[in-house]
Amino acid sequence: MAPKKTSREVAAEITALIIRKLEEGVAPWKRPWAVTGAGGRPLRHCGTPYTGINNLYLWAIADACGYRSRFWMTRRQAEELRGNVRSGESGSLSVYYSAFTKRENDPATREERDRKFRFLRHYIVYNCDQVDGLPDFYYPPVLPDTPIDPSARQAEIDRFFKAIPADVRHGGNEAYYNPSRDYIQLPHPRSFKSMDYYASVRAHETLHWSGSSSRLARIFGKRFGDKAYSFEELVAEIGSGLICADLGLPNELHDSHASYVGQWISVLKADTTAIIHAASKAEQAFNYLRQFSESAKEISEPTATAAHHPAALAA
């Protein structure tokens, strides 16, 4: 049995793959949902979507290895489903934070207090393309590569953005979020190639809007020195990728800001936990923005049950 990796080794392994994909020009938050057969986020064996860094990392693994299944599971879970991981297959990391509490003396008050410590843990999972004998449910059918009719997703796009109480102004030829005056500036929708392109850009700027001090207060301070702004851009890129995947937007829309890619790579090389932190912040922002449309839907459909929720169907 291979020796257990330390938290530092796990973070370094994840970061190395993300850096390699960035250097190849394939950001792990843009392309993979179209590569996998069924699209969408990676799923646990029970159908629950992965979140945070697991989402990006398993997307990157699937892209690098050509896996089409969205599902991942441990060897034991595969065996419980009467499946068998093929001989010679290599597993992938799935990480989570654990914590313990230690009783310490407060040097200022000389009183005892509980201090909580968080640390990174991991286990090994396999994509279902690496496993034989599973129920057909876990293997995506081979589908023709036909684009989705833009009108089929426009209602969902409109519902998502309409519910968010951001001040969005249209005009000019620039897209940005103004933090001092708290508004989003976008060109007129007619200026874009399609409403999908417009939605993609609006998603990115709305991610910035979510980080305001009056909302999620996403302030990185001096942690990354003069890289703080590019780190915020990284969070916005990852978060907008999650929105676009959720709304079913074509993946080719999402071109990373070229001027930031080099800075992102330097930040990740300097701090192997940076991508984990960025993915966590992006996930938090995505969930924050998503709750607006979910709340609006609950109000308009008060009798809806969980069984009829799109997320339940996707699982």
Rank of each mutant, 00 (worst) to 15 (best):
M1Q: 12
V10W: 06
A11K: 10
A12I: 08
T15C: 14
L17I: 10
K21V: 09
V26A: 15
A27I: 08
W29K: 06
K30P: 00
R31P: 02
R31G: 13
W33L: 06
A34D: 13
V35S: 05
V35G: 02
G37V: 02
G37Q: 01
G37I: 01
G39Y: 00
R41Y: 12
L43D: 06
L43F: 04
R44S: 14
G47L: 08
T48V: 12
Y50W: 05
T51P: 00
T51S: 11
N54C: 04
W59S: 09
A60P: 00
D63R: 05
G66F: 05
R68M: 05
S69F: 03
F71M: 12
W72I: 11
W72N: 06
R75L: 11
Q77V: 02
E79L: 11
S90Q: 13
S94N: 12
A99I: 02
T101M: 07
R103E: 11
T109R: 08
T109G: 07
R115E: 13
F117K: 08
V131T: 09
D132W: 00
D132I: 02
D136A: 13
F137S: 15
Y138T: 05
P144F: 01
I148F: 02
K162D: 10
P165Q: 04
P165F: 07
P165E: 06
Y176W: 14
Y176L: 15
Y177M: 14
Y177A: 14
N178M: 15
S180P: 05
D182R: 07
I184W: 00
I184M: 02
L186C: 13
P187Y: 03
P187T: 05
H188E: 14
R190I: 12
H204L: 07
S210A: 14
G211M: 08
S213N: 07
S214R: 12
L216Y: 00
A217T: 05
I219R: 13
G221N: 07
G225F: 12
E232N: 13
I238A: 08
I238E: 06
S240V: 00
L242P: 03
I243S: 00
E252T: 12
S256L: 14
A258C: 02
A258P: 03
S259V: 10
A274V: 03
A274H: 01
K281N: 11
A282F: 05
A285N: 02
F292S: 03
E294L: 15
S295F: 12
I299Q: 12
S300P: 06
T303L: 14
A304R: 11
H308P: 02
A311W: 13
L313K: 11
A314K: 11
A314H: 09
